[in-house]
Simulated scan of single mutants.
Amino acid sequence: MTQTSFEIVFSTHSFGLMARVTGEATFENTVAYWRAIVAELDKRASPALLLIDEMTGTPLSEEHWRRLVEMMKGGPLERLRIAHVKPMGLERIEYCEIFALEAGMHARVFTDQTDAVIWLRHGLS
């Protein structure tokens, strides 16, 4: 098993939960930070998640994104709006959005945090 090397910081925002993640972009780290987000959602309910993903390194493959979404199906991520922001560029993360939508999740990917917040606020009371 590979040692994870990332940092995740949680905070609240007017629409719900915000998470900022930094570190090395590996499949293991990505799975680990999504599991950390799920654990945080178990502690505090939220209608939406703003994820600022500042991971660096080789982007995940299409297959990795598919596997990740499959692993997250059936959990609390299916009950909220998810805006996944990659400020340094999408780097194939559009696959994550496609697979998430196919799995019934309400998710979008962005390069701009302002656009993500506007999308999250749309339709939220």
Score class of each variant (00 low, 15 high):
residue 48 A to K: 07
residue 13 H to A: 09
residue 28 E to R: 06
residue 111 T to F: 01
residue 77 L to C: 04
residue 56 T to N: 13
residue 75 G to S: 15
residue 88 M to D: 15
residue 41 L to I: 00
residue 54 E to W: 11
residue 41 L to S: 00
residue 110 F to T: 03
residue 119 W to K: 03
residue 60 L to D: 04
residue 79 R to M: 10
residue 119 W to I: 00
residue 13 H to K: 13
residue 15 F to G: 05
residue 74 G to I: 14
residue 102 E to L: 09
residue 85 V to D: 02
residue 47 P to N: 02
residue 70 E to V: 03
residue 90 L to M: 08
residue 38 V to G: 11
residue 73 K to P: 10
residue 87 P to T: 01
residue 12 T to G: 13
residue 122 H to G: 04
residue 117 V to A: 12
residue 8 I to W: 01
residue 106 H to F: 11
residue 101 L to G: 08
residue 97 E to T: 04
residue 60 L to F: 06
residue 65 W to S: 00
residue 97 E to H: 06
residue 100 A to H: 05
residue 33 Y to R: 11
residue 95 Y to L: 01
residue 109 V to E: 01
residue 84 H to P: 08
residue 105 M to A: 06
residue 6 F to T: 10
residue 98 I to L: 15
residue 66 R to S: 11
residue 94 E to L: 09
residue 114 T to Q: 08
residue 69 V to M: 05
residue 96 C to H: 13
residue 69 V to G: 10
residue 59 P to Q: 06
residue 28 E to N: 07
residue 116 A to L: 02
residue 11 S to F: 06
residue 67 R to V: 05
residue 32 A to F: 05
residue 113 Q to W: 05
residue 18 M to A: 14
residue 55 M to P: 03
residue 12 T to C: 11
residue 75 G to T: 14
residue 106 H to M: 08
residue 38 V to K: 10
residue 45 A to H: 02
residue 22 T to V: 12
residue 32 A to I: 07
residue 53 D to L: 00
residue 116 A to T: 03
residue 13 H to W: 15
residue 41 L to T: 00
residue 22 T to W: 02
residue 71 M to T: 15
residue 57 G to P: 03
residue 53 D to E: 13
residue 9 V to R: 14
residue 97 E to K: 00
residue 13 H to P: 00
residue 87 P to A: 02
residue 108 R to L: 10
residue 16 G to Y: 05
residue 37 I to T: 01
residue 118 I to V: 14
residue 60 L to K: 03
